[in-house]
Amino acid sequence: MKFDIDYIAHNNKLSNVNTYLKIIVAISIMLVTLILDNLLLDFIVFIAMAIGILVIARISFRDYIKFLSIPIIFASMSCLLLLFFFGDGKVIFDTGIFGIVIREDSFYLATSTFCRVFACFSCLGFLTLTTPIAQILHVLGEIKVPKILIEIALLMYTTIFIFLEQLYTMRQAQETRLGYMNTRSAYRSLGYLFSNLFFKSLDKSEVMMNSLNSRGYTGQLPTYKPSKK
């Protein structure tokens, strides 16, 4: 598991644009598409966001497709379920297998849901691919979300990376010692890995907390914000 999105968010043409603007644009368009639920509008939003991501923010096409691939799989599977197993309207297509049919209302439900998911998802994509998480937390802090929430979020953000680093190191160590040679040893190694992961990470983050405390940490991590040109 790697955070390609995190890397992309820091390295694109829109990273330094006003965070409020990006958040407001993405969320308001998302809400409008969600509420109006119109197929044409969904399509327009999808295209507009793709232009925003690919042309304006200059994120490579490969990264964008990679970002969309998982939601495409999830959304199409879910909508196939809605298409075949839901509804009680007029039958418009009979597959002939186990009496599975496509009905008029389920067809409508599935297509509209699929398009809505896609339009909303590209808004989310626009936001996440162009905005680093630290900036989002900063905005949350400015709109008076309780400090303790931001603090835990920041600590958790660091801890997630500690977890991933531990995971990577331990997995490499196991692999070099042939820990994943066959299925049996793979299960055993995976068990060891996960049971130790938690404590290794706890140790590391306690060390981090001690070093923070010894430098006068009071629950706030002031961050440098580059001034706007």
């Binding site: 999830f74 599977m77 849901t113 600590l155 660091t158 997630i160 706890l202 907390m209």
Partner: peptide, 24 residues
């Protein structure tokens, strides 16, 4: 605080190990 952050990160890592399910 650390335990809180670590158990949150644990939740994050575990719930990121996703398998697709056909239910949206």
């Amino acid at each position: 605080k650390t335990l809180l952050a670590v158990s949150g990160a644990f939740m994050f890592v575990l719930s990121s190990l996703k398998l697709p399910s056909v239910t949206g």
